[in-house]
Amino acid sequence: MALAIFDLDETLIHGDCASLWSAQMGRLGWVDSESFLRRDLQLMDAYGKGHLAMEDYMAFSLEPIAGRTPEEVEHLVGPWVEDFIEPIIFSDACKKIAEHRKAGDRILIISASGTHLVKPIAERLGVDEILGIELEIKGGVYTGNTVGTLTYREGKITRLMDWLDAEEENLEGAYFYSDSRNDLPLLRKVDNPRVVNPDPVLLAEAEKAGWPIHQWS
């Protein structure tokens, strides 16, 4: 049995859940749709190019839920996942998860998105274990801040190593599937890196290293 690790956005789903949730917050009237989504697009473009400070994006994207209870947000995220995320789940991703599950592998999703989004999406994929950006809760409401190491770039390794220690697991024979140059640190750390619909930088690195390249639809 090995560990099968999956990135989420643009790997398991055809889109970025944080940006899609930003659009949903516009529909809910929590933000001014035009200006908020314009800024979201600018920040996500920087993310795609590897230029984004994730702390900046999280401070921006979490501001609309500050002061709201986790229960209120969860109540609205559930239907959003059903309506907007389920239709963009890659069928090939579902097949690969099933393949690893049949092999007896332990499946983990590790994402640079907030756990308030990652957890319900993972549940729709039948995956129980996740690592994502943790949100701070005080007085029963979200503060708009994050907690601990962000699961982004090298931060994914930090959080994963802590998780491995806590679970008495290891990376022997582990797989990691990702689409993004931002995940190169973790891809280089596992025995079985797998590249999915890669961005140009990751594609070049994968071809140079001889890593398997998947085109999922």
Results as ranks from 00 to 15, higher is better:
Gly29Trp: 03
Leu41Asn: 15
Cys17Trp: 02
Gly26Lys: 07
Trp30Lys: 10
Asp16Gln: 06
Leu28His: 08
Gln24Asn: 03
Met44Tyr: 05
Leu76Ser: 05
Ala18His: 14
Leu43Ser: 05
Arg27His: 07
Gln24Gly: 06
Tyr47Asn: 03
Gln42Tyr: 14
Asp16Glu: 13
Trp30His: 05
Ile85Lys: 04
Trp30Phe: 09
Glu72Thr: 13
Ala46Cys: 11
Val31Cys: 13
Ser22Ala: 07
Tyr47Pro: 08
Ile65Asp: 07
Ile88Pro: 06
Val73Thr: 14
Cys17Asp: 01
Ala93Lys: 01
Trp80Cys: 00
Asp16Met: 08
Ser33Cys: 13
Met54Ala: 05
Glu55Thr: 01
Ser33Asp: 12
Ala93Glu: 00
Ser61Thr: 01
Phe60Glu: 02
Glu63Tyr: 02
Met44Lys: 03
Thr69Glu: 04
Leu62Asn: 13
Val31Met: 13
Met54Ser: 03
Phe84Trp: 12
Pro70Met: 12
Trp30Leu: 10
Asp40Leu: 10
Asp92Glu: 11
Trp30Gly: 01
Pro79Asn: 02
Ala23Leu: 07
Glu86Trp: 11
Val77His: 14
Glu74Asn: 12
Ser19Ile: 00
Asp56Leu: 00
Phe84Leu: 06
Tyr47Lys: 07
Trp21Ile: 04
Val73Asn: 12
Tyr57Gln: 05
Val73Pro: 15
Ser35Gly: 13
Pro64Tyr: 01
Cys17Val: 03
Ser33His: 14
Ala53Phe: 04
Pro87Tyr: 04
Ser33Thr: 15
Pro79Phe: 04
Glu82Arg: 14
Trp21Lys: 09
His51Thr: 10
Leu52Ser: 06
Glu55Gln: 02
Asp83Glu: 11
Leu52Gln: 04
Ser33Pro: 09
Glu72Arg: 15
Leu43Pro: 08
Met54Gln: 02
Leu76Phe: 01
Leu62Thr: 06
Pro70Tyr: 06
Lys49Ser: 13
Trp30Arg: 15
Ile88Phe: 06
Leu20His: 03
Asp56Ala: 08
Ala66Trp: 06
Glu71Leu: 12
Leu20Met: 15
Glu86Arg: 14
Arg27Met: 07
